[in-house]
Simulated assay, not measured.
Amino acid sequence: MSSDRYYRFAVSVAKHLLGQESAFMRDSEQSEVVHMHGSDDTLFSLDMTPFAAEAAEVSALPFFDDVSGVSKLLSAYQSAKQSLTFENDLPDAKRHLSDYADDFLTALLARANAALTDQQARTIADWVKHLDIYCAVKCVESFLYSQADLKLLEIAPRYGWDVIFDHMAIRCGSQEHDDAERVANLLKKKHGYVSTQFSGEAYYQFPDGWNAYPVYKILNNGQVLRIFVDQSDADAPSQIIQHWNRVYGYTAHHVGIRATQLKAGIRTAVPLEDVMRALVQEGIDVLTPTGHYTRGLLLQVFTRPERNSAIPAALKAEIIAHGAQLEKTIENAKLLELVSRRELMPPQAEAYFALYGLTYDPSNPHHSAPVYQYFLPAQAAHVIKTSQHIAG
Rank of each mutant, 00 (worst) to 15 (best):
G357Y: 05
V280G: 00
L326V: 07
L287I: 12
H382I: 00
T288E: 12
G323T: 07
L338E: 13
A369N: 09
L299N: 14
Q379M: 07
A278N: 04
A314D: 15
E350A: 15
H322V: 01
E350Y: 07
Q325E: 15
L297V: 08
V301G: 01
L344K: 03
I330A: 12
Y293W: 13
F375D: 13
E318C: 03
Y360H: 14
P305Y: 05
P362V: 01
L279D: 05
G323S: 12
K316H: 02
E318V: 06
P305S: 05
A349E: 10
Q379S: 04
L335S: 15
H322D: 09
T288I: 11
S368T: 15
Y356R: 07
P362S: 07
A317D: 10
T359M: 10
D361N: 11
L338C: 13
A369F: 04
A381D: 14
I284C: 02
L297N: 08
E337V: 14
T290N: 06
T294P: 07
T290W: 07
Y293F: 15
E331Q: 15
A333K: 09
G323L: 08
S309R: 09
E331S: 14
L298I: 13
Y360N: 02
F353M: 03
L315Q: 05
L358Y: 07
A314I: 07
A380V: 15
L335T: 14
R307F: 07
P346V: 01
L336W: 03
L315N: 01
S368Y: 06
L298D: 10
P370D: 06
Q300L: 10
V371L: 01
H382T: 05
E306D: 10
D285C: 06
A351T: 08
G291Q: 09
Y356I: 06
H382V: 01
H292V: 12
T359R: 14
E282H: 00
N332D: 03
V301F: 01
Q300N: 12
I284R: 05
A324I: 11
S340Y: 00
E331Y: 03
L326F: 09
Q348Y: 11
E350I: 09
D361G: 00
Y352L: 14
N308A: 06
Y360D: 05
H367I: 03
R295P: 05
A354R: 11
Q300K: 11
Y374E: 01
P305M: 04
G296K: 06
L376F: 02
L355S: 01
P365Q: 00
A380M: 04
